[in-house]
Amino acid sequence: MADVFISYKSRMRPRVREIAAALEELGLTVWFDAELEAGRSFAAVINSELAKARCVIVCWTPDAFAPEDGSEISWVEAEASIARDRKVIVPVMLERVPLKAPWNMFHTERLMDWSPALVATHGPWLATLEVIGRHVGRPGLADYARAGDDPAALAAWARAYPEDPRAPAVPADGKPDPTLPARRAIRQIAQMPVAMRWLLGATLFNTIAAILLLLRFGPDASGNASALINAGPILSAAVWALALWRSKVLDIGRALFTIMASIIGFVVAIFSAPLVEPLMALFNTPSDQARGFINGVLSGFGGAFVSLGGIALLIGNVGRDRWIKILLGSLALGLACGVLGLGVLKPLYQSNFFWISVVWTFVYGLLLTRLALGRSASSM
């Protein structure tokens, strides 16, 4: 049973994630439909969670009253009706909208200008926490949010509300808790979407692996490199494929095909080299810096765009705006590789290939994560 159930239009999911994370930071359990698992009946799970939640935040927006399936009432209104009947409704407004009866009879806090940075000071947010606190048996919830990270204020709060489940963890002497930053970081990681956790973890792993592989087998001062270096892109593609599968962005079959898309991108990056000399002749610039810049741009852009484009096709239902973002992201990565090809980081390490490969791996992983999150946000 969750403390808080959040009802909202799927368009507002990024905003709702912020609200859920802020509530979880206060020690509340939160449920909203991003937690749904494939293979389970959406309606059955939603109804079960809605019936058990200790309170229901209803997020009003102009489209919250629009039926999704041609019926006379929207999902948000239907869920609000159940919450009203159970007397656990906590209505908030995320976008300005005139409320119709009977919803205009309920006091509704306006969170249009709320942000996670205002969790301790935003009046309507604190008023919302007051209501939630009454429903979940934590009357000091809003005061806990007001205290923020102030050790003295937290100690005073704990003395005022000793029955609150968070009170025992507050140092009675008002001194800072040295474990607080680590615990907060762990909670923030746990609150990330599943796809983000898997893809960012894969990106960090691949970046570190790329550094170690390049230092051991990468080009030496004369430009010679071990053939084992070519295993790097294949292994990293396999790690990202695993992350795409485990995060349920793709099924196992399509996830395996992303390895092929990544390998094709790698081949495109390699075979962009013959275009360097013609472009240098076109711009009439024989310098090694120009060669490094052009090579970096072509390989960085081509490899990223082909790989991400192939994965986007496997994901499916990727709109024009997403393709534009893939194009712009790949172009930005290509330009970054071009700048590195100028040798700007050679004083730190002599190989431009090293820097281009490491930066490409890291930024590509971020672009892939963004693509996967776009798929997750639009899947329900």
Rank of each mutant, 00 (worst) to 15 (best):
L373M: 11
E277C: 06
R17V: 11
L367V: 09
A202S: 04
D113C: 01
G292N: 09
V131C: 06
V170D: 12
I234A: 07
E109V: 05
G137Y: 02
I82W: 05
R166W: 03
E95T: 14
A153Y: 02
D321Y: 05
L204S: 09
R370M: 15
L327W: 14
V359Q: 02
W157F: 07
L94N: 01
A227G: 15
F301S: 12
A127F: 12
I186Y: 12
A304H: 09
I270M: 11
F353P: 00
R13P: 09
A273S: 07
G223Q: 01
R187Q: 13
D3T: 11
L126S: 10
I82D: 03
F106G: 06
G140L: 04
L200K: 07
M192D: 15
F283D: 08
V119E: 06
I89M: 11
V56D: 00
E18D: 15
K52H: 12
A202Q: 08
V16T: 09
S81R: 14
L94C: 09
L213T: 15
P91R: 15
A372C: 05
G223K: 03
G334I: 05
D150K: 00
G338M: 08
L215V: 06
A2S: 11
I211V: 14
F205V: 12
I46W: 00
A185V: 05
V363I: 15
S115Q: 12
R40A: 14
A44D: 15
V88F: 07
G201N: 00
S287G: 07
R322L: 07
N47I: 04
G316Y: 03
L213V: 11
L327E: 02
G70V: 05
A66N: 04
A255L: 04
I73L: 14
S376D: 14
Q289M: 06
D164P: 02
M112C: 10
E18P: 07
N224P: 06
A160R: 11
N47W: 05
L214R: 05
F362N: 03
L36S: 13
H107M: 13
W355K: 02
V359K: 00
G253C: 00
W240C: 04
A281H: 14
L126M: 05
G253E: 00
A101Y: 13
V136N: 01
A182L: 13
T361N: 00
E25C: 13
A158T: 05
A336P: 04
P116T: 05
P14M: 11
L23R: 04
A336C: 15
E109K: 13
A169Y: 01
G123S: 02
A238L: 02
P233T: 09
I19F: 07
I73F: 10
A231C: 12
A142D: 13
F65R: 11
R96F: 03
A80W: 12
F32G: 12
A304P: 10
E18W: 13
S378I: 13
R54Y: 01
E79S: 05
I324H: 14
V131Y: 09
W114F: 14
A38L: 12
F257I: 02
V88A: 11
E37I: 09
V267N: 01
R134L: 10
P274V: 12
I270K: 11
G218R: 01
S48R: 10
I132R: 10
A312W: 05
K346P: 00
S41E: 14
V56H: 00
F106S: 12
K9N: 13
N317W: 01
A377W: 15
F266W: 08
G253F: 03
W60Q: 08
R17K: 13
T258A: 10
V268Q: 04
V306D: 04
Y349R: 04
